[in-house]
Design a protein around this nucleic acid. Structure first.
Lengths: 194, 194
DNA sequence: GTTGTTCTTGAATGGTCGCTCATATACGTT
DNA sequence: AACGTATATGAGCGACCATTCAAGAACAAC
């Protein structure tokens, strides 16, 4: 009996995610989203109770669910090893150097912009970091078994370092998207695995 | 003959720097600074032509000039070596774990929040990264001469990696200020220097 | 066709933003 | 004491912010 929705909430959420991703939370206004989607404020607020902040948290979740797996690629597979870690880093560098990828990672941006003042957002970021660390650890363990890294490697510790390295890569890449520099960082990170 | 200034511009600039540091550019309003300093908008704008953005750039420069040297400490000395790099990293970890240091680094925050849209700010950030890299390279060269790291170490490449690592450390620390995690990252970064 | 329910619409709310300007004020000079 | 100059003041500018709400509209059930 009710009047049917004339827009797809997921479409709006996707636009919101993209804006938050490339411009950040504060720099993205509801009016931006209204203009970009054609959905009027009233409809937007009734479709997303909790307003801008709820929309932001849902954007983070959508990013984790749809964008992150695409970037991780084979690194989340159970047989991932050094090559898959390398593939992930190479993908990061490629993104940072391309016009579309300069926005970096929504979750890294969020860690800096909002983690200190927004516990819910910080929790999503922590979940992402833990997920990265889990992948990396698993891949390093596979690599150790296959003799692709030195036997003395501390897999869990090195995984934590690799996670920090890729966060740092994105900070550096955002200020200075220089291919030589970014590749040097990645090469040296892998040289350390022996 | 003119009426004398009743406030010290440097004091205002210092307050601005601190606010930008802990809350970011967008989240800091001129009214914040007016309330914090007692200097009225008109006086503030006449003392800092160019408004908020000029005040921000001057804050970045002040940070580079006063805060960064304090954090780098002995790492900028010509005889710096591994111990000084280690000291710098330990200082970062200590800061990230303390209530006053949770704001991280103004220049890292700026890289994420504004580098993509603000060339002038990005240039200051790039200068900072270059400065860090210079210190690290020099310290690693000293360390090589003294046999404190493996002879095969690529000093310039490892320096770039160390710079990225400390940026990453601050991203991770902001979302997850966990001492064990941060120390593991630092320990593994140094283990790689062999 | 009437009713009930949900959605759409867009004007409007109260607040904050960065910034300006007319006016008043305090000094050194004369 | 009068003047010229640079500052202090703070109300006020237009723009934008997130959010709300009363009114109209589209459907299913009856």
């Amino acid at each position: 009996m009710p009047r049917p929705r004339e827009f797809e909430p997921d479409t709006v959420l996707n636009v919101a995610m993209l804006r938050f991703w490339e411009r950040g939370y504060r720099a993205t206004s509801i009016e931006d989203l209204v203009k970009a989607t054609g959905v009027k404020p009233g409809s937007l607020y009734s479709a997303f109770p909790g307003g801008k902040h709820a929309l932001f948290l849902k954007s983070l979740e959508r990013y984790s669910r749809l964008v992150v797996p695409e970037k991780l690629g084979a690194l989340e597979a159970s047989d991932a090893s050094v090559a898959e870690i390398r593939g992930y880093f190479d993908g990061l560098v490629r993104d940072l150097l391309s016009p579309e990828g300069r926005q970096g990672c929504l979750l890294v941006n969020t860690a800096i912009e909002k983690a200190a003042e927004d516990d819910e957002a910080a929790a999503v970021v922590r979940g992402h970091l833990a997920r990265l660390e889990r992948c990396m650890t698993h891949a390093l363990e596979n690599a150790t078994r296959r003799g692709q890294v030195r036997a003395s490697l501390d897999c869990t510790g090195s995984a934590k370092l690799l996670v920090a390295t890729c966060q740092g890569l994105m900070v550096v890449g955002k200020a200075n998207p220089d291919e030589t520099l970014l590749r040097a960082i990645v090469d040296n990170a892998f040289a350390a695995l022996g």
